[in-house]
Amino acid sequence: MLKIQKYVRAESLEEAYQELIKNRNNQIIGGMLWLKMEDRVIPSAIDLSKCQLDSIEENENEFKIGAMCTFYQLETHEALNQMCQGMIAKSVRDIVGVQFKNMATIGGSIYSRFGFSDILTALLCLDCDVVCYKKGQIALKEYIHEPYEKDILTHVIIHKRKMKAAFECVRRSSTDFSVLNAAGALIDHQLRICVGARPHKAEMIEIEEQCDLQDILKQVHEAMPCESNMRASKEYREHLRDVLVEKVVNELKGEKA
């Protein structure tokens, strides 16, 4: 059972941060969907609900997504999904159900960098930054390799780019975790290909648009190895990796899958 000793609804990020660093086990709570299943004591659970982080702001250059925005907000945001041909919506669409998506937060998910994450795979392909309270702004593709630090992820920024984007996944049941997921984007003649739930967390590689499929797959194999777990064997995942990457590439290049 999760035991929370003190609940802090921070009025400001500074207050939240100060509370966070007071104790090694203090914790920011996002959607709480994963945290809730843990069996431990949290001296101080810090809620960011009052920090105005729950909206998607759009300006000329970017979408600025507050950390407390839910998956369902992402799924139903028209302008954002228009830019990426619905790829973000597609990546979160089948995560459990609408109630779950109304609670799961982008901040909690991206901070945690889960191996099974679908949204991480999708966002990695976009021109995307993460804003942390202390660390400041950093590209998502770098952030995924950072250690888990005592900091507050406040925003995810998606830069507006002209792009083609695609997301594919295979699930055992329609709302299960992905057995494997793959996403891609074509931005400025550059292909960005990402494979997640291998079951390791997503990685992204950038490739020249002209590269043929065999070259792409070769690079994917090197950068994104697969392993076995209860959902699938290594061998099946490796097969799916090729199949889904090919699908994604075909969608990006406008060829029939």
Binding site: V170, R172, V179, A232, S233, E235, Y236, H239
Partner: peptide, 8 residues
């Protein structure tokens, strides 16, 4: 699917 494709 994995069994159908003969991987398992």
């Amino acid at each position: 699917p994995e069994k159908v494709l003969g991987f398992k």
